[in-house]
Structures are given as C-alpha cells and as structure tokens.
Computed example of a mutant assay.
Amino acid sequence: MTVIADHGAMSRKRSTTWVSVVVFILLIVIGYYLTRYQDQTAPPTTPAPAEPGQDPAAQLAALTVAPEGRMAGYSRDRFPHWSSQGNSCDTREIVLQRQGSDVRSDGECRATSGSWVSVYDGETITDASKLDIDHTVALAEAWRSGADKWTDEQRQKFANDLGGIQLIAVSATSNRAKGDQDPAKWKPPVRSYWCTYALNWISVKTTYKLTVDQAEHDALATMISQCPK
C-alpha cells in the first residue's frame, strides 16, 4: 500500500510539473505575439535639439574648417542602410514609430497609419509613403567632410544612427529639395527651426569628427545667433 501511495504522489507531481511547463510555454508564446503585433502607439517624439554641454558658438569654433573633399569613390552603397533592428523592423520603420503620432504597424513592421509633422516645411503627413528619413548631415556631405576615410562599418553606423538627431522623418518634398547640401546652400523653409537644425548639424559633425567648409561654418554661425539666449 505504501508503494501504491508513493506512485500516486509521483504521478501527481509529474502531472503538476507538466502543467507548469505548458503554462510557461503558453506565456512565452503569448508574450511574443503581443510584442510583435501590438499597435505602435507610443507617444510621439520630436528629435531633440543637440545638448552640446557648452556654448554652441564654442562648439562650432572647435570644428576643423577645411575645403570640402572630392566625391571620388562615393556611393550610397558605402553607407549600408536601412539596417535590421529586430522584429522585422529596419531603421526607417523605427524612426517612423518614434517620431509619429498614433502609429500603427503591420506584422512586417511597416507603418500602415499615423500622423507625422515634417519640421522642415511644417507639413502634416498621414501617409508614410510620402515621408523620407533624412540624414541631418547627408551621406555625401559626410563623405566630403571626412567619412571617405572611414571603414564601411563606421559608415553603416553613421547611416543608421538612432541617437535622435541624425535621422528625422520629413516630407519627401523637403528632403529631396535639400539633397546633400549643407546649410550654406539649403536651410529648412520653416525659419523657426533654423536654430535646432544648426545645433543638430554641429552636434553630428562634432560627434563624428567631420570638418566644415568656410561657407558652411559662416551659415551655421548666423543660424545659431538666432537661438534664444
């Protein structure tokens, strides 16, 4: 009788263990699908102005002023993007999720709805296909400013920098008007954004140790002189 009782206890213990395992697996599966397919409804964030930790004019003065380099050897392929960021998302889709309002994405992480304010021209856009992800300091501009000497791995990091100020979702119209021009040749149509744009530009060039040419330097100095004191 004692042996029979022991077998019963062992049987109940094994049963309890299997139930625990099954419940654990179910929780993992449910958690996975909730994470992968939930609506992207995080509060919108606007790329923050650079916080250089010192006077912007001093940071600008610390940049090396040099003539622009040549475009020999340049190709956008030398700056691999958009990189995978996990859960079927790439860099572009992460930027859209972060910078939009009420963004919803499908199972492949593609934005299917939402609202974005293009800070360059003030346009409100509700169709993600009409948005470009702009590199504050364009890839070709970076190449002419020193990135031609980087490794492809360094260029990939630059092209997919999710730190908050190098990548920004803007209207395709404004991004293509900008092209690869620096602030001496192109400024955002929304004049009130000039201060933030200049601060971000200076911060990116400082972080990546890129040079500025004289006209670019002078244009940035004019733009930051309009920042609130």
Rank of each mutant, 00 (worst) to 15 (best):
A128L: 03
T17N: 12
V95K: 07
M10T: 02
N200F: 02
I30L: 15
Q154W: 09
M10G: 12
S83I: 07
S113Y: 04
P189C: 08
G73M: 10
G179R: 10
Q97I: 05
G53S: 04
A215C: 02
E153I: 05
A147V: 05
A140W: 06
Q156M: 11
W18F: 14
L220K: 06
Q166Y: 06
S174N: 03
M1D: 13
V170S: 00
D148A: 14
A159M: 05
W150R: 11
L96Y: 10
M223R: 09
S225K: 15
S129I: 02
D132F: 06
R14D: 09
Y37M: 12
P49N: 04
L26C: 12
P188S: 07
G164N: 07
R144G: 00
T211K: 10
K229W: 01
L96E: 08
K229M: 02
D121G: 04
D180C: 03
P188E: 10
V3R: 13
T16Y: 08
Q214K: 14
M223H: 08
K13W: 14
S75N: 12
D6W: 10
D180L: 08
A72I: 09
P189R: 07
E68R: 14
R98Q: 15
D182Y: 01
R12Q: 13
W150T: 02
A62H: 05
L34A: 14
D180G: 13
A140T: 00
Q59D: 06
E108N: 14
T211V: 03
C89N: 10
Y74N: 01
K209I: 08
S174L: 02
D55M: 02
G179K: 10
D121R: 07
Y197Q: 10
Q59R: 14
G69Y: 08
